[in-house]
Design a protein around this nucleic acid. Structure first.
Lengths: 339, 339
DNA sequence: CAAAAATTTGAAATCGCTTTGAATGATGCC
DNA sequence: GGCATCATTCAAAGCGATTTCAAATTTTTG
């Protein structure tokens, strides 16, 4: 069923039918109704490729994900948020899978050259992210989820990682903890650097010296977290508190604590960062988990909204959002125990 | 940079350039080389919409996901596998987000009418899945991840859920367990029904009677699993073993066991189904988790491959794959303890 | 060396839509 | 009634690729 067929069926020209369906003013209200009704009845939908070719809009936004590392719970939850907002506009999400950094660069170039997407979402930025520079060079609109140092203005949305960790660390210091371990993301990643800043700031504000042995940089899997925490718990004096970078990390740390014969919330405290996964609830852990919390899904919804704003002409230099992070105290964090 | 520009730049016609780039035989090898070199140097890429309009192929496969429930770890891991395979063919994944069942149906209709995708992947089938019928009616090629009862032949790939649970249950019975709880997926879902069959078959083979109080049907979140397991552990006599539907479920059950003051692997055993998430490793739990294991990512890779086969003409009735599931025994399952 | 065959190139049609510019008929105004 | 105005409609020209069919050139053949 093409526009032509529909027009023929109605005894009208393609022009009029097209206009009627797209809400142009210069068409008789009676005909518009007739067209709309018939189109709905026959289940007519414009051919996507033709529509895009004619309008020059791709009707999709792109995301490039590393096959090996980035298809995790964070990505899917974020995607869920993005999709939720974009579905309303009938804009699709185009997911491109890559293996290496080189592939990723190539993927963006392909997106731009083939005009397959109208904009992209850039994730997991480094402090000086070359991908952001590339996208600006290519003229491909994008919103950065996170922050990076760039000479030119760009649109971004980030959560206040520094503030969150600073507050969490301060709170643990208030409770008497002095040996506080930080399980952070990989070095170079902006969010990890920001968290480290918050951690160091809180320590130095109390005159507590920083011990490199209490800081780990790794991906957020329960396995690596387990190993790191296990090693740290063998130190003497051992850490009395952990800051876990994600809920997955928290699971690993938790396991290490238990295996060391210690009890979470008593001999050892923990505050974990919670991106709010529906299938892994901090409130329903045992003991319940204290968290720095910020919904990554909500961030996805908002970033989709920002993309739409950019596409409708809003200048990127006006698009910066820094979201506060809640500190939610539950059972896993408590005063340091007397020896 | 359009084909026209490139052709002009080369002093050739669009026709010849197009042919050279697409490997048609009727073009001089010398010109082909010159064209290829220039195209690469100028970074020419055909406009995706134009190419699709001309060829009639969409260059994308579709997946419809429910925003609220389906954007979980399973989906992302599966997507990672699909993307991995499709990336090689420069085929995109188009993710459409919906809220309700009605929306989902509408999304498939839209896919078909707008010719936005060449094929789709259908997930989480019910025993009699109307969506499969719809797709066949629409003539939209698809591969089903799972199984359903349908009058017409369709392409599917599934894991042997019945066999897996039957084997796990038999193993627990061998160890002396008689009160074995099954935390299953939602009723009506094919995989859940299949698992139930395996469970019942194993029980009846030993003459162990089925106790409905020991079966739970729910989504696979740690929270619901926790509540279900907690309730079951209050029964007397209480279950001595759990079959957990997913690793998330296992986490919840684990928590309930611990909260009840019991020890996993001793007073209570557990075998969980493991879809193999890189960030949640059964081997690195404490105690290590016995599992029925089948990589959902690998299934994604294979399903992508099957889609490609269908698109190149292989009849769907030849495409059925039933994958065996490994039973991996670790510390969480052991002989029933003497009272 | 001319004719036939093979190789290589190009002009124009096509895919299904949007949109420009022109045409038609109805209405308003003096 | 005649002319300008307005509301509707339509034919045809894009969008940027592929592909059909024809033409030009080179090679082969008798």
């Amino acid at each position: 069923m093409r526009l032509k067929d529909l027009a023929q069926h109605l005894g009208l020209s393609q022009t009029t039918v097209s206009r009627a369906l797209n809400g142009y003013p210069e068409v008789n209200e009676a005909t518009r109704l007739r067209v709309a009704e018939t189109a709905a009845r026959l289940g007519y939908r414009p051919n996507a490729s033709a529509l895009r070719l004619a309008t020059g809009r791709a009707g999709a936004i792109g995301m490039v994900l590393r096959a090996s590392t980035e298809f995790g719970p964070h990505a899917s939850e974020f995607l869920g948020g993005v999709g939720e907002r974009l579905a309303a506009e009938e804009i699709d999400i185009l997911v491109s899978t890559v293996e290496t950094y080189q592939d990723e660069i190539a993927a963006y170039r392909r997106f731009a050259a083939s005009q397959r997407v109208d904009a992209v979402i850039l994730q997991s930025p480094k402090l000086n992210d070359q991908r952001a520079e590339l996208l600006m060079d290519l003229g491909l609109p994008f919103v950065l989820h996170g922050r990076t140092n760039a000479a030119r203005p760009l649109a971004w949305l980030d959560i206040d990682n520094t503030g969150a960790i600073e507050r969490a660390t301060s709170h643990l210091l208030d409770l008497g903890h002095r040996r506080i371990a930080l399980l952070n993301g990989m070095k170079g990643q902006t969010f990890a650097e920001h968290r480290e800043l918050g951690y160091l700031a809180a320590l130095s504000a109390r005159g507590v010296s920083f011990d490199p042995a209490l800081m780990g940089n790794s991906t957020f899997t329960d396995e690596v977290a387990f190993r790191l925490a296990q090693a740290m718990l063998e130190l003497r004096p051992r850490p009395t508190a952990f800051l876990a970078g994600s809920m997955m990390t928290a699971l690993g740390v938790f396991r290490a604590i238990r295996q060391a014969g210690l009890t979470l919330g008593q001999e050892v405290s923990m505050i974990a960062h919670d991106d709010v996964f529906p299938y892994l609830n901090a409130d329903n852990m045992y003991p319940t988990m204290s968290t720095t919390r910020s919904s990554i899904r909500t961030a996805g919804v908002r970033i989709a909204e920002l993309i739409l704003q950019i596409l409708s002409g809003k200048p990127v230099e006006d698009i910066h959002e820094l979201w506060p992070v809640e500190l939610v105290l539950r059972q896993s964090s408590g005063p340091v125990m007397e020896k």
